[in-house]
Design a protein around this nucleic acid. Structure first.
Lengths: 107, 107
DNA sequence: CTACCTTTGGACTGAAGTAGTCCAAAATGA
DNA sequence: TCATTTTGGACTACTTCAGTCCAAAGGTAG
């Protein structure tokens, strides 16, 4: 699976590669057609469940789809601020590493 | 400036190193004492303005403090999901890179 | 123990944000 | 032209969150 520029682009590509209309995919996912359109346009976020359904429907790894989604969220969050992205991600990785060990109790 | 485990820990350390009570720092920042307490406990998020004031008050780089803050936000976001952090950050960096060039028009 | 100050956190309110729906206009294309 | 898809505006309900107030708990010195 390829990571497009945004999550919306990613799922849009999956759909268009199969020449399916929004309506049809939306039905399969059991969501409103308009909702799906918005997800493809990044103006609504999919739930975890929808991501899972996407993965099943298009037979792609749900882990990859989740990465596509989370990286979007994280990228936008950092973009809104200044140009520290690399540094932010670097420090964030350390924090995640630390928090992973601490997670159980967390205090 | 040192990056503690969380943003709250970072500012708490700054304050305690100077032996200042919450009340005093809160006054200087012009926020409620309880608010500051919550920020140190990571249960409320500081605004950009507050981060700036923090930086001035403790004479640390506001860029660093911002990194401390953003990395927290980003770390928690990724932590909530599975264990893909490194991959997420890697893809996110690419997206930021791309978005930075596109930002002006954005579509 | 008392008195005082600090720290912690519960509870609440109002504001901001967001998902999801419905609908209609615009685009596409046969 | 007609049918279908795509787009997005507008709205509602729901959730989240900042910010405040207050009271209980903790610490410390007299």
């Amino acid at each position: 699976m390829k990571f497009e520029k945004t999550f919306g682009d990613t799922v849009k590509k999956l759909r268009e590669d199969k020449n399916l209309p929004l309506r049809e995919v939306a039905e399969a996912l059991n969501i409103d057609t308009s909702m799906l359109g918005k997800i493809e346009k990044n103006s609504r976020k999919p739930t975890k469940q929808i991501i899972e359904k996407f993965a099943k429907l298009f037979k792609v790894s749900s882990k990859d789809l989740t990465i596509a989604f989370l990286s979007d969220a994280v990228a936008y969050q950092v973009m809104e601020e200044e140009n520290f992205s690399s540094e932010v991600f670097k420090v964030a990785e350390e924090k995640v590493e630390y928090l992973k060990t601490k997670k159980p109790l967390d205090k």
